[in-house]
Design a protein around this nucleic acid. Structure first.
Lengths: 170, 170
DNA sequence: AAAGCAATTCACAAAACTGTGAATAGTGTG
DNA sequence: CACACTATTCACAGTTTTGTGAATTGCTTT
């Protein structure tokens, strides 16, 4: 039972990283699917491949990919004349996409806190919630900065890491 | 019985915000307890008060506060000659404390990704995981900046807010 | 040292979550 | 137009989580 190319190690890594994502609020199965797609060498995966690779039923994949597509982490596409869907990482810079996604969540939290503040009588509690809102707003305001700096950082990494690449399709 | 001073509204807010914290990875009961302490006017709370306020058993409070104390979000203290523990928000700048807490998590993720990279054969998967690690590292490196800026922002808010209302009571 | 409380622990029941298998719907092909 | 095959939905079962009630522990006071 030779582990050709360390696929076993890869599987282990996928589970570990999925756990991290899980603890950050992502549901278990979507986390596993995403980690799998991220760490795999293939550029696209069919549902059947994912089910096989993760040893779960197609039903589980169906739900997971729907969520991931909804949250813009994966894209589903199907070449004309093909019968199966293919999934791949949504963006070349997926993590920035993820950060971008947080914004709607922050908006939600902001309104929740704002509504709370309106109903809370003045006092220490009100003061703490107010400061909480300020903090969330501040963090959100830093996302732009983060994006800019990451872009630069990333570009720097790319040029220093590179020149291994030929012309045609990736 | 009238809802004196909107305590009902406060309770509702507590539940909503607890849900937010919950979705960010905090367990349900600790999230409720923390939200309650945050939004309450009292500076300290006994376990009995928390149990009463949240309508749960003392046993549930015991577990929740232990976790919150462990994660440095609440402090437990007991005045000499007092028989009960009193809990209060750990820091005046609690959210920065929370951010600080993330660092150990990031260290863990970093080693996990690094170990993964060592076992992964070169290829697209390796490349993506590598970039993932770079991203996590980058975000972590931004925490310092965040802390500094927040400090300034907060100070500014304080001074601009202070002269508005100063007197007693309200 | 015994009583009185608060805090904690533990076994257990209720509730929530997760993934499966089977049925259903949808789509392209011969 | 019917077939072949993929994707999705749904009821259900296994598992995990969560909070309770009943002890148990530990401290303080008398």
């Amino acid at each position: 039972m030779a582990d050709q190319g360390g696929e076993l190690a890869r599987a282990r890594f996928v589970e570990q990283f999925a756990l991290v994502l899980n603890e950050s609020g992502m549901q278990r199965m979507p986390a596993r699917v995403f980690a799998y797609v991220l760490a795999s060498d293939a550029q696209t995966h069919t549902a059947a491949e994912l089910a096989e690779g993760l040893q779960v039923s197609p039903a589980a994949i169906s739900g997971a990919v729907r969520l991931l597509v909804d949250m813009s982490m994966l894209v589903r596409d199907r070449a004309p004349g093909d019968r199966v869907d293919h999934y791949r990482i949504y963006s070349d810079d997926i993590w920035m996409t993820v950060v971008g996604r947080q914004e709607s969540m922050y908006r939600h939290i902001d309104t929740l806190l704002s509504n709370g503040l309106r109903t809370l009588a003045p006092g220490p509690g009100h003061r703490r919630v107010h400061e909480t809102r300020e903090f969330y707003r501040f963090v959100e305001s830093q996302f732009d900065t983060l994006a800019t700096r990451w872009e630069a950082h990333r570009a720097a990494l790319r040029t220093s890491r590179e020149p291994v690449r030929s012309a045609s399709g990736e």
